[in-house]
Write a protein that binds this DNA or RNA. Sequence first.
DNA 1: TTTACTCTAGGTATTAATACGGACGGGCCG
DNA 2: CGGCCCGTCCGTATTAATACCTAGAGTAAA
Lengths: 220, 220
Amino acid sequence: MANVKILLADDHKIVRDGIKLMLEPQAGIDVVDEAENGEKALEILKDQIVDIVVMDINMPIMDGITATKKIKEKYPDVKVLALTMSNDDLHIRQMIQAGASGYIMKSAGRKELKDAIDAITEGKHYFSDEATESIMMDLVKGKGKSTGPDPIHITDRELEVLELIVQEHTNQEIAEKLYISSRTVDAHRRNLLQKTGARNTAGLVKYAFQHNLISSGKDK
Amino acid sequence: MANVKILLADDHKIVRDGIKLMLEPQAGIDVVDEAENGEKALEILKDQIVDIVVMDINMPIMDGITATKKIKEKYPDVKVLALTMSNDDLHIRQMIQAGASGYIMKSAGRKELKDAIDAITEGKHYFSDEATESIMMDLVKGKGKSTGPDPIHITDRELEVLELIVQEHTNQEIAEKLYISSRTVDAHRRNLLQKTGARNTAGLVKYAFQHNLISSGKDK
DNA sequence: TTTACTCTAGGTATTAATACGGACGGGCCG
DNA sequence: CGGCCCGTCCGTATTAATACCTAGAGTAAA
C-alpha cells in the first residue's frame, strides 16, 4: 500500500512543524504539503493528491469548518482530521456535520494523533474521548433537547447584528448601518438572546467570543 | 559548555511534542521537562535545574504572565521565552514587564525558535519582528500616551464588578453580591467605561476577554 | 399549496444603563 | 499634616435595552 499523504492546515508554523516532525519518522506517512489557512488548503488540493487533511479549526481567512465543507464537496474522498484547542461541543458538531472523519485536540499526544490517522486511513472514524463523550451526551439527551446547548442556528442577519453589537454599537446605529428599523434590530437582538440563552448584552458578547464569531474584534 | 536545559510550558501536548522534536536534534539543547500550566512549571523548577522556560501565555490554572513573574521572583537566573498565538501589544508588554527575555509567536518557524534560544542563552534578548515593531511604536509614541492603551490601572474592586458584569449580572445583582449600593456599582461601571475606553457593556465584556480577565467564564 | 422560517416592523411597558453632577471617610505617602 | 486615590453613596436626567405581543412579505422546502 502506498504511503498515506497528509496535508497540514494550521496557521501556526510551530504547530505544523511539530506535527510534521511527529509524523514523518512514522513508516507509511508522508506530509506532502502545508497550508496556513483553509483557502490555501483548497488551492493545494487542486493539484496535489492528498489522503488526509489535518485541519485546525481556528484559522484566519478561511476557518477549518468552512474549509472542510468545501473539501468534502469537491473532493469527497479526501478525509479530514479536525484539530483544535478547545473542547467546544459546537465546534465538534459543526466539524462532524461538515464531514470530518475525526476530531482530536492539540492537548492530545503523539500516540493519539497516530491512532487517529491510522483509523481514518482504514476508513474508520476517530474521536477523542472528550468529543465522544460530548456526542454521547447528545444522543442521551435525545437529539438536542431540554437544557442542552442545542443545535441552535443563528441566521446570517442575526450574526451581522451580533457582530455590530460586539463592536459596541447601539440598536439605532446598527439599524442605520443595515438600513433597517431599530425595531427590527431589537427583534434580532431578542432572538439572539433567546437562542444563545444569554440574559443581556454581556451574554451576547461573551457568546460571540466563546464561539469565536468575532472576526475583526482585535485590539486597537 | 553544558547543554542548555529547556522547560516547556504549554497546555497543548501536540505543541510541546512539536517543539521538543524540533529542539532535541539540535546540538547543545536538552528539553529536560514539560508542564501543562504555569503552576506545574513552578513546581518543576523547585527541583530541576533549568536555563530557559519556553512559556505559552494562554494556559489554564496559571497563565504565562503570572508564571513568568513568579519565576523571575524566585529564580531570577532562569530565562523565559514567551510563546503565543496572538500578536497582542498588551501581552507583549506584559510579558516583557514580567521579565521575559524574548517573545515569539507560534506562527514562527523552527529557525526563529532556535535563534531565540541561542540569543537568550547568550544573555541577550530576542523579540519577533512583530513584537519589536510594537515596542518601537511605543517608544515613538513617547511612553504610552495619546491613543495608546495607556497604563490604565483597574482597581481590585472594579475588577470584581467587571467579572460580575461579564457573568451577565445586572447592577442590582452585583450590588447584592458585593454588599454595596447599586449606585456604587454604577460608579464602578462608569469608571470602567472611562478607563477601558468602552462605550457600553459590550465594550467592557470585550475588554475583559481581550485582556484577560475571565477566569471561569467557560461554556456550560 | 401548505408549512416553516427569515426578515421585517410596530405597540406598549418596564427595567437597565449611561451621563452629568457632588460628597465623604479611609488609607497611603511625601 | 496635606494631598491623592479608592471605595462608598446620592440626585437627576436621558437614553438604551428588555419583555411582552402581534403580524405581513418573501422564500424555500415538504
